[in-house]
Amino acid sequence: MNILVCLKQILDPDIPARDFRIDPERREAVRGSADLVTNIFCENALETALQLKDAHDGMITVLSHGSEEAEDVLRKALAMKADEAALVLDDDAAQADPLQAARVLAAAARKLGSFDVIMVGRESGDWGVGQTGGLLAEELGVPFIALVEHLDVDEGKLRIRRQTDTGTEIFEVTPPVVISITNSENNLPRIPKTRDVMKSYRKPLTTIAVADLSLTPSSDSYFRLVEISVPEKETRCELVEGHNLEQRIDAFAHRVAEIANTTR
């Protein structure tokens, strides 16, 4: 089983609200003192791939589209015991929309070899669009299954369990296939051993300049970012009054109804 896992580096979504700022001109978040981390759903995907490899053998390649700093994401994946890593270097990667990203990833995947399964995270922790996986499948011309929480290999076929709003669906698929992985209690990313972290820095890492992928520049994106802003939150505290509990509950209910009506 030859597996490709796509990893995206994002601004740490766990930074305190106070430290999160945006640049309205450039329409992007300001890095500030925030750290860059691997998108958590991508880590779930990697963990799923690692478990598949542990159970059935295989080869895991990790791929990222990003700036030089995205190397950290790949090194960490190598430390978690991915076998090979490739970085598509693109200083404008942060501005890429899902379609652009999917085209880059598809071109890189073709360049890297042939894969039975290509895994992506459910969505990214920064924009949360959740479309790169589907678009990537389209670009590669293979099936796509979204929100997968578990997969297994059975006589060359993949048994895939995906979450739906009403329950779970089980698919049987013949590779190649693109799947997006959702988080579950079974795919919490493992903590790499320090020995493997140390070794990860000595492993080779393929770097591909985005220009070398000979993508035709296109302006046909379906996706346009118009404006971004941080929603302003206002908190006010009001105390309702009344002589006894009943009156206070009454007053409270009235006030809630009032507010609901004005904001409707």
């Binding site: 766990d14 930074i15 305190p16 106070r18 981390v37 903590i191």
Partner: peptide
């Protein structure tokens, strides 16, 4: 430990800066 690696502090999920 993971929080230390990523964010330089050991308190995952803190909302404080």
């Amino acid at each position: 430990m993971t929080s230390l690696e990523r964010r330089g502090h050991p308190y995952p999920g803190t909302r404080l800066s």
